[in-house]
Design a protein around this nucleic acid. Structure first.
Length: 356
DNA sequence: GATTCGTGGGT
DNA sequence: TACCCAAGAAT
């Protein structure tokens, strides 16, 4: 099944990659200098932030977090709401909720230290197969098969692996495990990720500079850009909804905390209707947080793309009184302090439409 | 195994 | 413009 008589099987040398890495390693805020002992807290925090998130986007967030919460104990002792506010804009907010739970779990362990094995790490909230292996290897020098999106691309090209993702994951893991050295496993993992990020890129890989050019089966066949194979993805539907911008004459606006689970869980929102594909805009104000208001539809719309659907929100505005009580689950926030709230980007776009 | 879960930048 | 993609995890 896996035998490909037309593709020569070549020996892949971990050393060739490590030599390249020692010369070209990226300097990243969370990466310890050569010879220095990595801080498990910084390794963990960066790995959580980097899940499905670019290095560029993570940078400022990582710096802000370690400046404000220098240790896992400090993070564990922090107000959860402050952490959500600091995370706002980075996306995938369940990560922030798991971050809090994980910090508190670690702080409650003997010595307040992270587990130093892949298995122990895997049991922590928000730590899956990739992150557990990455922390074990990078922070604790454990030999572990680290497989992220970069490494999937590198490995499927190296072996010209025809199996489409995600079905290919178990085989990729075996192939990575087979070449992971006992010495410098953390550097090896980071080297493969650097390779995927800088040379073995999705488009126009720089094969001429690659330390693994010779053993790469896809390069030999000239098909490197076609890997990894992937299952076609579903079309993204369009959902619509309404948001309700209620302001008081003294400069307060009504906001609401979203349920802890689900989309934008635990974050602050401009009170909104559900978002559906068959939203009835004529009955939009049925979803308003307060009845009996003179809701007027504002010009323009807020558009935002989520992973699995496209969103278009129509904004309705009304004037409240200084004495208007906030409905259940809602609260008043000073307009000038709205930016400091745990507002996801989608909500900031809605606020921008409302404020003209 | 398939879905759900954000956001910004690159092409 | 309309995709694609990024140091994935939880359910």
């Amino acid at each position: 099944m896996l035998h490909k008589p037309d593709v020569p099987v070549m020996r892949v040398a971990a050393d060739d990659l490590l030599v390249w890495y020692d010369r070209h390693r990226r300097r990243l805020p969370w990466r310890a200098a050569p010879g220095e002992t990595p801080d498990p807290y910084r390794v963990w925090l960066s790995e959580i932030m980097l899940q499905q998130t670019t290095v560029r986007a993570v940078g400022p967030y990582f710096e802000a977090f370690v400046a404000r919460w220098p240790t896992v104990a400090a993070l564990a002792a922090a107000d959860g709401e402050d952490i959500l506010k600091a995370w706002a804009g980075l996306g995938y907010y369940s990560r922030a909720r798991n971050l809090i739970a994980c910090a508190r779990a670690v702080a409650g362990r003997p010595g307040g230290r992270f587990p130093d094995t892949e298995e122990g790490l895997r049991a922590l909230p928000g730590v899956g197969a990739y992150t557990a292996a990455a922390i074990a290897a990078i922070a604790f020098g454990r030999r572990a098969a680290v497989v992220d999106g970069n490494i999937e691309r590198v490995i499927t090209r190296l072996h010209a692996l025809e199996t489409p993702l995600p079905a290919a994951k178990p085989e990729i893991r075996r192939l990575v495990d087979a070449i992971t050295p006992a010495d410098r496993p953390g550097d090896f993992a980071q080297a493969m990720m650097d390779l995927g990020a800088s040379l073995c890129t999705p488009k126009r890989p720089a094969c001429g500079l690659c330390p693994w050019m010779k053993p790469c089966a896809a390069r030999l066949a000239g098909t490197q850009e076609t890997f990894p194979r992937k299952m076609p993805k579903a079309v993204r539907p369009l959902r619509r909804g309404a948001a309700f911008w209620l302001v008081r004459p003294d400069g307060y606006v009504l906001v609401r905390k979203r349920p802890d689970k689900g989309l934008l869980g635990g974050m602050t929102e401009i009170p909104s209707s559900p978002w559906t594909e068959d939203f009835d805009m004529a009955r939009a104000t049925d979803h308003a947080p307060l009845r009996g208001m003179r809701w007027r539809r504002l010009p323009g719309e807020a558009r935002h793309g989520f992973t699995h659907f496209e969103l278009v929100v129509t904004v309705f505005a009304a004037d409240a009184l200084t004495t208007t009580k906030a409905p259940e689950g809602c609260r008043w926030v000073r307009l000038a302090e709205l930016d400091g709230e745990a507002l996801p980007t989608a909500m900031r776009k809605i606020a921008a439409v409302a404020r003209g």
